[in-house]
Nucleic acid binder design. Structure first.
Length: 553
RNA sequence: GCGCCAGUAGCUCAGCUGGAUAGAGCAACGGACUUCUAAUCCGUAGGCCGAGGGUUCGAAUCCUUCCUGGCGCGCCA
């Protein structure tokens, strides 16, 4: 709708210049159109006059009058008026807006899809929690935001892959192995002095118990070998928990990518060799460093430690280079905000290897402060005092939980009070939106009983719908595709959430003000058409967020 | 000390990349169920957009200096 109008204005303006009606000012390259906050001002507005009228700096009525004449030829505009300092308001003809209803009903599930992504191959890597323990609440936020972002990108025409990076190499895995082994020995009756730096939580004992049941006891096996066996078993076991929890949360990955496999395939050494060949790395104090300062980092970073082992950064270099080798045009990493200090070195590494740093976009997810009755939890994996994602889902419910995580811009912190989320579950915004969907379904059931059928096209609607709130609903529906597109381009899935709440609010308001099923058949059918268009959009948007759209509540 | 993110109604937050009189939801107060689901709606009240300066026709939005809160600044992952 906006695009159509913009094109029409541009064409009209061009006409004006070519015919010599307009001489002052310059033809702008693009017209900015805004939706005025106050609907009385019109459906769209532009500060075009401002641009054109310089240096007079006043709204030229002449331009507006010429424009309206041209636009009326296209039957697009009902009126054009000049308002405020340099503003021209375009009030579109009502049928323009009601035409949207047909678009919605014909497109159905695909209404809202666009091609702004132009098939760009993009990877969203998210969660990627270490497989050393169950997912906790903080992972949940990253999981939902990443998943919804991927869905929004898909809807906007990007070619999207969802990936989970499994950190199955490195110290933390060895620590896990050692912890399991100690618990195993404990189960075998040994007195164990459990170390401070081990994983102390209860689940480690569960893994040990399972290991004992499946693999028996580790008699006469060398310490290092035993730890390795426990570690592998533990990682595999915990990954199944993670996958299951995410699955119940409605999240599925296209690919699980093993860090260990990078080493197994010598990928890390290969990439480090490339860096060396480019003269980007150097040796100092028995360690290998990457000269990231050359590309804007604060200090140089270690790739290989003086004891010969690799840093996490080393495998990340290989991992990210490999992503581009796999053909992705752009790569998004969803990280906890506490990792933000890590971004400069990643960008530096990309720049060093000849990739524009913009190809990597890091989405930082701010902390979730978990509360119960206003009292904050302190969380820490090692101490074992943490709330798992599963517990939260079981307590709050999947739909409410997902919606709650998405309701904010991801770069602001989120207070998550379990008791509040539970107690206020009926006041939760998610039910508000779902209820709107259920209400339309209910109307449909009543319509079927009364023999009122849904019109094939919106023709009836155009003639019958005259109320301002009906027009407002149509206009809001028209905004949905651009909402999704802007959410994708800006990597901000929360925009869809706010749109949904607005749509639900307008629908509820309309529902309370006007009956859909009335004595007059034409009116009933026209309104039925309208509310079913609302239902389609509610359903599409909820699906993007991974929240269910119930038929009844 | 340096860096990143935030600061908008009593509380929790939007504000579409510079536009018109800054918006929702909770909480408060007053109303609406013999009518398609009251998990809803309507109304009232609530503001130095953290503070100062700058950029311009125009700033919550951009630049700058402070203040406050959170998080980072390892040969940890």
């Amino acid at each position: 709708m906006k695009t159509q109008l913009r094109q029409a204005i541009m064409a009209a303006l061009k006409d004006c210049y070519e015919s010599g009606d307009l001489t002052s000012g310059e033809l702008p390259e693009e017209i900015q159109l805004e939706v005025p906050k106050n609907a009385e001002h019109g459906d769209f507005a532009t500060n075009l006059a401002m641009t054109l009228a310089k240096p007079e700096r006043k709204a030229p009525r002449q331009i507006a009058e010429l424009l309206v004449k041209r636009l009326q030829e296209h039957a697009l505009c009902e009126s054009v008026d000049i308002a405020g300092p340099g503003f021209i308001n375009f009030k579109l003809a009502a049928q323009c807006w009601y035409a949207v209803l047909d678009q919605v009903m014909i497109s159905g599930d695909s209404f809202g899809r666009s091609d702004v992504g132009q098939g760009t191959k993009i990877q969203v890597e998210f969660v990627s929690a270490n497989p050393t323990g169950p997912l906790h609440i903080g992972h949940g936020r990253g999981a939902v935001v990443g998943d919804a972002l991927a869905a929004v990108l898909q809807a906007a025409g990007y070619d999207v892959q969802r990936e989970y990076y499994v950190n199955d190499a490195g110290n933390q895995v060895t620590t896990l192995g050692r912890s399991i082994l100690l618990r195993l020995r404990e189960l075998q009756g040994e007195q164990i002095d459990f170390p401070e730096d081990g994983y102390q939580a209860e689940y480690v004992t569960d893994v040990a118990r399972k290991f004992r049941a499946e693999k028996g006891e580790l008699e006469g096996v060398a310490e290092a070998e035993a730890i390795e066996a426990c570690a592998r078993f533990g990682v595999a076991e915990i990954l199944t928990w993670i996958e299951k929890d995410l699955g119940e949360f409605g999240i599925h990955f296209d690919n699980w990518y093993s860090e260990k496999s990078l080493y197994d395939r010598s990928m890390v050494d290969q990439e480090l060799a490339k860096l060396k060949a480019k003269g980007l790395s150097f040796e100092q104090d028995d360690a290998l460093w990457l000269r990231t300062t050359e590309f804007g980092d604060d200090k140089d970073r270690v790739l290989i430690k003086s004891d010969g082992s690799y840093t996490y950064f080393a495998s990340d270099v290989a991992y990210h280079m490999e992503k581009f080798d796999r053909g992705f045009d752009r790569v998004i990493d969803v990280w906890g905000a506490d990792h933000h200090g890590y971004i400069p070195r990643m960008k530096a590494m990309l720049a060093g290897l000849g990739h524009p740093p913009e190809d990597l976009e890091v989405l930082l997810i701010q902390m979730v402060n978990l509360l119960r009755d206003g009292v904050p939890f302190t969380m820490g994996k090692r101490s074992g005092n943490f709330i798992t994602l599963r517990e939260v889902i079981d307590e709050v419910g999947r739909d409410a939980c997902r919606f709650f995580f998405l309701i904010r811009r991801c770069d602001s912190q989120l207070d998550f009070d379990l008791e509040l989320a539970k107690q206020q579950s009926s006041d939760n915004p998610v039910y508000y939106v779902q209820y709107a969907h259920a209400r339309v379904c209910s109307i449909n059931r009543n319509a079927a009983e009364a023999g009122v059928t849904l019109p094939e096209t919106g023709a009836v609607a155009y003639q019958t719908l005259t109320l301002p709130e009906e027009l407002a609903l149509a206009r809001l529906l028209a905004r949905y595709p651009e909402t999704v597109a802007s959410a994708a381009v800006n990597y901000e899935p929360h925009r869809v959430v706010f749109y949904l709440q607005e749509l639900a609010a307008q629908f509820h308001s309309y529902y309370n003000r006007q009956r859909v099923l009335v004595d007059d058949v034409d009116t009933s059918r026209a309104r039925l058409y309208l509310v079913n268009a609302v239902k389609v959009v509610l359903g599409n948007a909820l699906k993007l967020l991974g929240v269910s759209a119930p038929e009844q509540m």
